[in-house]
Write a protein that binds this DNA or RNA. Sequence first.
DNA 1: TCGCGCCATGGGAACGTTACCGCAGACTCT
DNA 2: AGAGTCTGCGGTAACGTTCCCATGGCGCGA
Lengths: 350, 350
Amino acid sequence: MASRNRRPTIIDVANRAGVSKSTAARALTGSSNITDETRERVVKAAAAVGYERNHLAVGMRSGRSGMLGLVIPDIANPFWADVARGAQDRAARAGASLLVFSSDWDPKAEATHLQTLRRARVDGAIVNPVSDSFDDLDRFGMPCVFIGSSAERYPDVSSVGSDIAQAVRLGLDHLVSKGHKAPALILGPKSRLARARFLRAVHEHFVERDLDPGMLAVEDGEYTVEGGREAMKRLLAQPRVGHLAVFAANDMMALGAMMAVRDAGLDCPRDVSILGFDGIPSGEFAWPGLTTVAKPGRDIGERAVEGLFDEIEHKPEHRRIYMPCRLIERGSLADLSVTTPRRVAGAGRN
Amino acid sequence: MASRNRRPTIIDVANRAGVSKSTAARALTGSSNITDETRERVVKAAAAVGYERNHLAVGMRSGRSGMLGLVIPDIANPFWADVARGAQDRAARAGASLLVFSSDWDPKAEATHLQTLRRARVDGAIVNPVSDSFDDLDRFGMPCVFIGSSAERYPDVSSVGSDIAQAVRLGLDHLVSKGHKAPALILGPKSRLARARFLRAVHEHFVERDLDPGMLAVEDGEYTVEGGREAMKRLLAQPRVGHLAVFAANDMMALGAMMAVRDAGLDCPRDVSILGFDGIPSGEFAWPGLTTVAKPGRDIGERAVEGLFDEIEHKPEHRRIYMPCRLIERGSLADLSVTTPRRVAGAGRN
DNA sequence: TCGCGCCATGGGAACGTTACCGCAGACTCT
DNA sequence: AGAGTCTGCGGTAACGTTCCCATGGCGCGA
């Protein structure tokens, strides 16, 4: 008899069904070599005692915990929340659970979280790497998939990210089509590889158009609203002629830049055009709506989980996947291709 | 010798240190009755083989998995992400991990996630309940803490939420101080208990001011941008005199309402004032900045985890905690207390 | 009719950890 | 000096599950 406060085990089920625990296990795992009648009896017994399989025990026995880890900079950042959402959905669809951790761009926190994940015996982990020093990468101790372009630092690890080259091209082409020439750039910290990738893509685009990349105005900042605001302030302090266009490497920074423009008593998009990068929902509510190159965060999360499953099953795919981005046109870009820059009406969705 | 591809166990450590696994365990758990010299030898051996305690095994043995569950409507919703962030931080500080699930306000998904959590043998769960039918609450099968006002349906379960009465009072008082009389209300679906709580608080405030609650204009909608937009559209379609003030039960709805105002060719706050409820960052970037009553999402997450720990340790606290909210004044409210409603400049932070 | 093989079932081990118990050696107190 | 106590350590069981192997019964073919 299962006591009142103990969770029923498979032995309780077996006893109630009058079979051995082996048979009960066979019935419950749906394996073969068992009479339909016996199986049904066991299943009924299981339901009667409220049996629920103990995944800890299963994990111990099988070496698979059925859990995955996700380490991102900040779950409260909408873009990363979107990634987490995609990962969680995809994992759940495969019967797995997700352990989520926020590293806050802190290598130490990242290391701690990874250790926790190893100890929890997750089957694998998805990481947006902050740390530069995964030198002892075999010590990683579990199948891994990286998210983001910093992943390029580690050629032996599968990764999923957005196609930054395509995204930058998309953004710059759009800028050109609106009559803008060379946008100023607001980029992330120099330490981040994503910054280099972004800059390289811009350079390539410039070269293709026979422009001198040297003329690029670039400001750096943290990947935050405040970082963007400060960077924009510095940009506005520089002497300039005519309309200023800015391509920010991140929507949060773009929104910060927008605030800096307002702070300076200027108008976006009349005086300054701002193009973002991420596609977070906040951009839609800003005024003017933030025109941006949207990364498919949710898809990235889903693909990362799929890649992780491949990794766990030792399918030697070992791929880098670059997801295409798409342009979301809202109101933060002036149209200089017509004679009079007109205020774009309505911050329409999408 | 530990084979190349197997994770080292405590036995590998014991062998290398030349002690029994009991002694190794004693050394590693920091328990007493062990020589400093032996302990040091074991610790060194553990480091040498790269030993990491298997929490699955620990969980099996101890009955504590060291994991907590969190079931919220949507991790991609900034408010809930904030709650998750707080919960995750607090759990990590106690050495626990968090399993996060999004229910999408779907009772069936909620039930599935709860089952998954039980099977994973989490030590307890934090839930924002969607479902009405936890009639078999003892079948819940694990310590639980509820988040949000729907929790009031279940008097036997501890809960953490925001103090809606105080929040509504705060919002209405602020509205009054700005010269607004009776705001129209944009509320969530009738099925949600939070709606009733909100409405009751407004009624009380009206009665205190000798106003007739019957004069309240109320529109319902889903807790989404679209829901708010539609509700506002209906509100604007009604005949009215003078300035319209709206109190939305949720920031997303408030932002949707703001869009509807723009869609109608009106200006916020000149023609319409909007007050939100949640305190999501997006409200800061909107133009005008959304004045809102902010819930302490992060704190709620932290407190929920603390309450859950109490629950797990059978400290019979069994409390309802209502966290105070605070007003974030930005630019979405016209000031009718001065003669000319002036456009509020600068959507300052905080 | 006998033997072989298959199939349903039961018994036991193993996954990695910790708690309990027992033992041996050393130290203390009379 | 002998007895009792304490302390450090080793052996073993147990958590709940699944897998492998053994066993017995039954059916089928010769």
